[in-house]
């Protein structure tokens, strides 16, 4: 039997009406567990839309506090939240949108020694972190644990994302072998970012999470989607798994997680 209340049927009616989601898809969403890495520019829209969608359990991990410079794009937080833990602020906004969902705020920094223990409880990971060491750590851990995830990155007017199903589709390291040298690639805090770009990319990643859970449509697997919002040019580049990938290839050279390149993490421990 389908045990939605009348209120829930109203709340989720626009999902249920979709042929590719329907009652069954909404039940799957309610049983799903998604982890959002980073309660920032990408994590903000992700957290809000995942909660609104009725994803049953949503973890959100971030060790930062809300700063006034975040508010131009990190829409899960408000002016009153300045100085608060980002995950506590996000959790409050998520519960306000949808009290049905269980929100798990994790005020910690993902490291080699805690990531496997954290991600094992989730069906899908949405990476919205702000640094390369963590992006590679999320990739490697998800590949090793066999947990699908969405990669996302933004800068200035640009965004890029790909969805990884470990063992089936190209992983982040199939494309980018190792983190770029420190300071060779500017971050948003140095180069700036148009606030709405975070919303554009974060909602694409969220749509991928919802598609993965419900089985609707075709995922951005073996594909790097990138856009330049200054001209609104969108491009998809086809990718393939690389036999010599150091983590998902035939003879992986990365078989355990280390914090060697986790400079930020090491500093904050």
């Amino acid at each position: 039997m389908i045990d939605f209340t009348t209120e829930q049927l109203n709340r989720y009616s626009r999902h249920i009406l979709l042929k590719d989601v329907g009652v069954e898809g909404q039940v799957k969403l309610g049983r799903a567990r998604v982890l959002v890495v980073g309660a920032g520019g990408l994590g903000s829209p992700a957290a809000l839309y995942l909660a609104a969608a009725g994803v049953g359990t949503i973890g959100i991990v971030d060790n930062d506090q809300v700063d006034i410079s975040n508010l131009q794009r990190q829409i899960v937080h408000g002016t009153k939240d300045i100085g608060r833990s980002k995950v506590e602020s996000a959790a409050e906004a998520m519960r306000a949108i949808n009290p049905d969902v269980e929100v798990r705020p994790l005020a910690t920094m993902l490291c080699a020694d805690n990531i496997m223990e954290i991600i094992k409880d989730y069906d899908f990971i949405l990476d919205g972190c702000d640094n390369f060491p963590t992006k590679f750590l999320v990739n490697d851990a998800c590949v090793m644990a066999g947990i699908p995830f969405s990669h996302g990155g933004i800068l200035r007017f640009d965004g890029q994302t790909m969805t990884v199903i470990p063992g089936e589709s190209a992983c982040y390291r199939c494309v980018f072998r190792q983190p770029p040298p420190p300071d060779s690639v500017p971050t948003c805090s140095q180069a700036g970012v148009l606030g709405a770009i975070a919303g554009m990319l974060g909602t694409i990643q969220t749509a991928e999470a919802l598609k993965y859970i419900t089985g609707a449509g075709r995922l951005l697997t073996d594909t790097l989607l990138s856009f330049d919002a200054s001209n609104m040019d969108f491009r998809k580049v086809a990718l393939r798994r690389q036999d010599d990938c150091p983590v998902c290839g035939a003879r992986p050279t990365i078989t355990e997680l280390t914090d060697a390149e986790q400079t930020v993490c090491a500093l904050k421990k």
């Binding site: 990408l42 930062d64 972190c129 702000d130 640094n131 990155g153 980018f176 971050t187 580049v237």
Partner: peptide, 12 residues
């Protein structure tokens, strides 16, 4: 030829 750029932003 495809140039695939590193894009690391997201959170902070």
């Amino acid at each position: 030829v495809e140039f695939l750029y590193f894009m690391g932003g997201g959170s902070r």
